[in-house]
Design a protein around this nucleic acid. Structure first.
Lengths: 181, 181
DNA sequence: AGTGTATATTCAAAGAATTGCATATGTCAA
DNA sequence: TTGACATATGCAATTCTTTGAATATACACT
C-alpha cells in the first residue's frame, strides 16, 4: 500500500507531527492520496516500530504535547526503492460512472441533477488548482527540481478536473436532447 | 459501498452467474469499478440474503452447476434510490503521483522509466477504447437510451486515458530538460 | 460561566478488500 | 495419460479502511 510512502513523501522535506501531517494531507498530497487522521496516526506508529521514521516527543506548555516525526535514512531508502518498483495505474473506482452505467433505469432528471452537482464540484477544484498555478508556478521553466515535481502533480490535477468538466458538459448535452425515460 | 450497486447495474439487463459477472467486470463495468471474483461471490451471497437479487441453481451436465442471479424488484428499487443520493467525486488514489511528489529523492532515470511505463499502459487502454468506439458507437446521435449511457462511460474512459497520455508526455519533456539529481 | 474552535492523540468495532488456498468437472492437446 | 486450461464456487486468515467515539489543554468570544 502506498499510504506509508505517501506519508514518507510528505514528511521527508518537512518533519512534523501526526496532526500537522493530517492537515498537510488536506492541501497537497491529499489531492492524489486521501487519508483520515486515524489512518495517519496508525501508519506513523507502524512506521516508527519499523524504523522508517523517528519520533521525538515535544513538550508544549500552551498546548498538548506532540510527537515530531522525521524520516530515517532507512525510511528514505525504502521510499526510493518503492519508487523504483514498477506499478500499474491505480484501478478506477468512480461512483458517478456506476450511476451513469445504470442510468437508463433512473429518472432522467435525477441523472442530470447528479451530473450538475459533479460539474460544480469539479469546477470548484479546478479553480483552486488554477489559483495555485497562478500564485506559485508562473514560469515552469525556471523552477527548482523540487518545484518541478510539485508542479507536475498540480498539472495532473488540472487535467483531471478539466477532463471531468468537459465530460459533464458532454453528458448533460447528450442526455438533454430527448426526454424519454 | 458501490460494489453492490455496480453488481446490480451489471446484472440488471443480463442475469448471469458469479463467474460470468466476474468476467463481465473485466470488460465493461471494470473500467470504472474493479472487483475480484472473491469480492463478487461474497457480495452476491450478501445481496441474495438481503433480497436484492434472486438465485436459481442451474444443473449442467457438461460443466459444474452454476447459480444464475437476477435483480429483484426490490433490488432495482434500491439501485434507483442509491443513484438519486448525491455522491462526491471518488477520492483519488494514484501511486504514480505519490512517486512524482517524492521524485526529487529518486534517480531521474528511474522516474522517467516509470513515466514511460505508464505512458505505454495508457496508450494501450486508449487504443482499446478507441476500437470499441469505432465498432459500436459510430453515430452518437442515433443511439438508444441504453447505448447512450454506455457511450458516456466510454467517453469518460477515453478522456481519462488521453489526459494521462498528455500529462506523461508533458512530464517526460519537463524532466528531460536538465539532468541533475 | 458556558460555548465553540483549534491543537493533539488514541481506541474499539465494524466493514471491506486482499491473498492464498481448496474443490469440482470436462475438454483439448502433447 | 498427463498436464494445462476453462468453467464454476467457496473458505479462511490477514490486512486495510471506515466510523464513531473518548480524552485533554487552551484560547477566544458572549
Amino acid at each position: 500500500m502506498a499510504l506509508a510512502q505517501a506519508i514518507l513523501a510528505a514528511l521527508i522535506d518537512f518533519p512534523c507531527s501526526g496532526y500537522d501531517l493530517a492537515k498537510r494531507f488536506d492541501g497537497s498530497v491529499g489531492f492524489f492520496w486521501k487519508a483520515s487522521h486515524q489512518q495517519i496516526y496508525r501508519e506513523l506508529a507502524k512506521l516508527d516500530t519499523q524504523g522508517w521514521v523517528n519520533s521525538e516527543t515535544i513538550h508544549q506548555s500552551s498546548r498538548p504535547d506532540k510527537k515530531l516525526y522525521s524520516v530515517t535514512e532507512f525510511g528514505q531508502k525504502q521510499l526510493v526503492e518503492w519508487i523504483a518498483q514498477p506499478s500499474e495505474p491505480t484501478p478506477e473506482k468512480e461512483e458517478i460512472l456506476v450511476k451513469i452505467f445504470a442510468g437508463a433505469h433512473a429518472p432522467r432528471t435525477v441523472i442530470l441533477a447528479e451530473l450538475q452537482r459533479h460539474r460544480h464540484a469539479h469546477q470548484l477544484r479546478l479553480a483552486t488548482y488554477q489559483d495555485i498555478e497562478q500564485q506559485y508556478f508562473q514560469q515552469p521553466q525556471s523552477l527548482s527540481v523540487q518545484e518541478k515535481f510539485q508542479y507536475l502533480t498540480l498539472r495532473r490535477g488540472l487535467g483531471f478536473e478539466l477532463g471531468w468538466l468537459t465530460w459533464c458538459d458532454e453528458a448533460i448535452q447528450l442526455l438533454s436532447q430527448d426526454t424519454n425515460s
